[in-house]
Design a protein around this nucleic acid. Structure first.
Lengths: 169, 169
DNA sequence: ATGATATACTTAAGGACATTGAATATCAAA
DNA sequence: TTTGATATTCAATGTCCTTAAGTATATCAT
């Protein structure tokens, strides 16, 4: 057709400098993974957004009440954004909000049963998408991949936490 | 702290369904990678957003004029969103807009020299972040990682393109 | 206690983008 | 010319981001 479609990343006998290639691949995967996941979350049966989902996931993993500020740190959202996100989750009855008994300034958030159910449905649907995307990998490759991903993950946490603290500190 | 992350090292061999773990890792990495990259793009010297950046990147790789609709498809944005994104890129003089000579309905977009310069500065900064995140990997691991990433990437493209077409078609 | 500070969170205002549906302009034919 | 398809923009609405200001509540020094 109109050409201009060439993904241009296929062939090219990668001239060494694999770090650059990894950078490209991670960026593209992140972009695609988010888009792809957004599509899923936007289906009528779910109707949540990415920040809402990641917030919910964290609450479910935590398994107990969380302070707003801890939740904001852990999900890498600003406190101001999180207020809105939790508002919408509470409207949908996916989380409950209460005040801390001793320190009434603190707002505590818990996931509801309904929230837990929603998450497990989303995970199920997500898994189907993933199986398609990962279908080509051998079992050996999957193990290796997982191991490397975890290392990259911890590296990223380091980078993002450095950036979030004081940019001038 | 930011815990609740524990991967819970499996004792038994492949009883674990590592696909679930990979799913978790990819979601977390995508989320973090986007947040981390947003921080970077939001610095005063850049001041672009993620959709703007990915649009710019595509235009640079294409190397020539692109139709709005092709650009929307390729970057996985809706035509309506893309209009706004390109508006803002054009305001910053990072792209130029013209009409197709024969078919005046079509709007053609090209990246400007200034746009190309900006991209290469961003890439440079990005690489430094990446080196931090990937610092722990051996050369062998990097090669393997890259190979697997490319396979995952093509799997994802398949998934997202299936979802985007007609949900009812 | 009183007043000053620190904290935890919300609110407010403005920008970017997403979605949806309607509007516009152009092309291509019947 | 009317009709219909195509290419893009516009308008309305909602979510989320950032920054700055505002409201409680807690804590500490006096």
């Amino acid at each position: 057709m109109t050409s201009a479609h060439q993904t241009s990343q296929a062939g090219r006998a990668t001239e060494r400098i694999p770090l650059e290639e990894i950078e490209r691949a991670i960026m593209q995967i992140s972009w695609l993974a988010q888009r792809q996941f957004m599509q899923l979350l936007d289906e009528d049966r779910f109707r949540v957004t990415l920040p809402q989902f990641y917030t919910l996931i964290y609450l479910q993993q935590a398994g107990e009440e969380c302070k707003m500020s801890d939740l904001a740190d852990s999900t890498h959202q600003s406190a101001a954004s999180l207020t809105g996100v939790v508002d919408r989750l509470a409207e949908k009855l996916l989380v409950d909000r209460t005040r801390h008994k001793r320190d009434r300034r603190q707002v505590m958030v818990v996931i509801t049963v309904r929230g837990i159910e929603l998450i497990s449905e989303i995970r199920l649907a997500r898994r189907e998408q993933m199986q398609m995307a990962l279908g080509q990998l051998s079992e050996q490759e999957i193990d290796t991949f997982l191991h490397i991903l975890d290392q990259v993950l911890s590296g990223m946490v380091r980078v993002i936490e450095r950036g979030e603290g004081g940019r001038l500190a």
